[in-house]
Amino acid sequence: MNDSPERKFSAIGPRGLFSSIGVIALSQLVSGHALANEPGEEQLFRAEAYDASEQRTDLAIDKTMEGSCGEGKCGEGKCGEGSCGSNMRMDELAMVMNENKDNIPKDCPQISEDIKLTVKAGREYSLGHNGTIFGFDANEWRVSPCSRITVTFINEDQVRHQWMIHGLPKYLYPQGMYHMELNGEGQVTGTFIVPSNEKNYLVHCDIAQHMEKGMKAQLVVGKGDGNLPSIPGISGAYIPPAE
């Protein structure tokens, strides 16, 4: 049953639906000209130059920018008008958006299980899939309904990569999205909770052409509801329905 509107979108290229973290992430927190404030009101954001020799260890993100805007808080000023804002933490290495450690989905009596996943990303992981150039070390992860998943995302490349999951309930995850991003090599850890329905969630890197050239995967909750198209090692290209 691959005919839900959302599924169609993810099949024909999820950029259509799932876009612009930067804009969404914090535009709600920043109205108009974000830069209108003079520096000094907040601590300046210092991004030191880094190079390959620099050791990059697990991220201890200072919570400069952490905020929360779950259900019920939308429209109360903090998160901007008419839309539910995001929570986000970010430093010079990494960004985690819409982390959720505690809010249990409405349809879950309790958290069923705590799962720890390690996901590696980089060009090396494209080697198993001919014709691609970037990849994750796995293209599918299976979890139980209502489980709490803590992902340690490791980037082995010297460029940005993302681990972005779509289609989560919007009352818990603004835009239905949970997102991790690394500015270069390094790692970051974050947590989210899936609802009870059995579903295949799209996971990808949204940097232009990274999904198309290998960084596409699925998170299968329970038995799932059918493979997504064009996942390396799992499925071929999307076939549009006959007219």
């Binding site: 612009s20 930067g22 804009v23 992430a25 914090l26 535009s27 927190l29 920043v30 000209h33 974000a34 830069l35 404030n37 520096p39 000094g40 009101e41 907040e42 601590q43 300046l44 954001f45 210092r46 991004a47 030191e48 130059a49 880094y50 400069t64 920018m65 970010m90 430093d91 010079e92 940005r160 500015n183």
Partner: peptide, 25 residues
Amino acid sequence: AFVRGTNNLTMTQLMGTQLSTDALV
């Protein structure tokens, strides 16, 4: 941001752009 550099902005100012934290130091 292009005049000041991404390292000389407050976090709020940086969020007004879509630049990475280390785009322009």
